[in-house]
């Protein structure tokens, strides 16, 4: 069992947890992910690592309620445990294993959208710990959905916050901020963009025009996370890759976004139905039509 040491609600549907998992915390790196399973009957849920403490042996995860399992997970409190918690999985961010001088010579731009702020944070923190100031853009729908602002501010060079509705700091999409920075004369060697697929798709469209190589992190449907099921296959530069072992980070300009988004829909109906069952508990009868009706 893997005990939850801290459980915190960051926003309406977004939660943060510190979980005791010494084997994961010992060797994990920015860019990698874990798989958590709540109980015997639970799904295996892949989540990118948000932070880690090697001495305490803890991993910080941040998740958003998207289906029945994440809903169930949101009910867990400090002191509760996950039945299973495995990792670190996937390949670490490329810069971790590159010569530090090369990394220092580059100008990085990090772009985080919504809950994607969580996986961006350890990368920016790593940069900060290695004495590299990077520009960071954080975007969300509205003020309440801006996550980890303090934490991010303490490790970023320049931090630009934007909300779709203008309820906090700038108004507009992250792509607008990228364009504005570019127009103001900023030049970047690498962009790292993590967030909802639709955001990553449009960031990549723009950075391709601006000729900024862009890394994205994909979190598709998967089961084992070790290359066994092939459910997470994505097409990158016309080659089939498994996000769990070849990724999760890929060349964003090579990703077949439309295919990736189609594949994301695979279990949506099932998941949606299952979530309504959890929300409605014993009162769920499948008759109201929200879930499409039970068979």
């Amino acid at each position: 069992m893997y005990q939850i040491l801290k459980a915190e609600q960051l926003a309406d549907n977004i939660f943060l947890m510190d979980v005791e998992a010494p084997r994961v915390a010992k060797y994990c790196q920015p860019g990698q992910f874990i798989i958590a399973k709540i109980d015997e009957v639970g799904e295996r849920i892949p989540l990118t690592i948000c932070d880690y403490d090697r001495e305490k042996g803890t991993i910080t995860i941040v998740f958003q309620i998207v289906g029945a399992s994440t809903k169930k997970m949101s009910f867990l409190k400090a002191g509760d445990s996950f039945r299973d918690f495995v990792g670190p999985l996937g390949v670490a961010s490329e810069f971790v294993s590159e010569p530090i001088d090369e990394v220092k010579n580059r100008k990085y731009l990090f772009v985080a959208g919504g809950v994607g702020t969580a996986p961006v944070y350890p990368q920016v923190k790593w940069m900060h710990e290695h004495g590299i100031d990077v520009d960071v853009i954080v975007g969300a729908k509205t003020k309440d959905l801006i996550l980890l602002e303090e934490e991010m501010r303490s490790v970023s060079g320049n931090l630009y916050i934007t909300t779709d509705d203008g309820s906090y700091e700038r108004k507009g999409m992250v792509t607008q901020v990228i364009q504005d920075l570019y127009d103001a004369g900023n030049r970047y060697d690498i962009c790292v963009a993590i967030g909802p697929m639709i955001m990553m798709k449009f960031v990549c469209k723009l950075t391709k025009q601006l000729e900024i190589p862009t890394i994205v992190s994909l979190n598709p449907i998967m089961i084992d996370g070790t290359g066994m099921c092939g459910g997470c296959r994505v097409t990158v530069n016309n080659e089939i890759k498994f996000a769990c072992v070849d990724g999760p980070e890929f060349d964003g300009h090579g990703v077949d976004w439309d295919q990736a988004m189609t594949r994301q829909q695979l279990y949506r109906t099932d998941e949606g139905r299952a979530m309504l069952k959890v929300q409605e508990g014993a009162t769920h009868h499948g008759g109201c039509g929200h879930c499409g009706g039970d068979e």
Binding site: I223, D224, M228, C229, G230, G231, R233, T235, Q259, Q265
Partner: peptide, 16 residues
């Protein structure tokens, strides 16, 4: 067409 929705490896199908 192998990446269409509804194509699985036997491993994925059986593991599920």
């Amino acid at each position: 067409g192998e990446n269409a929705n509804g194509v699985f490896s036997a491993n994925e199908f059986l593991t599920r």
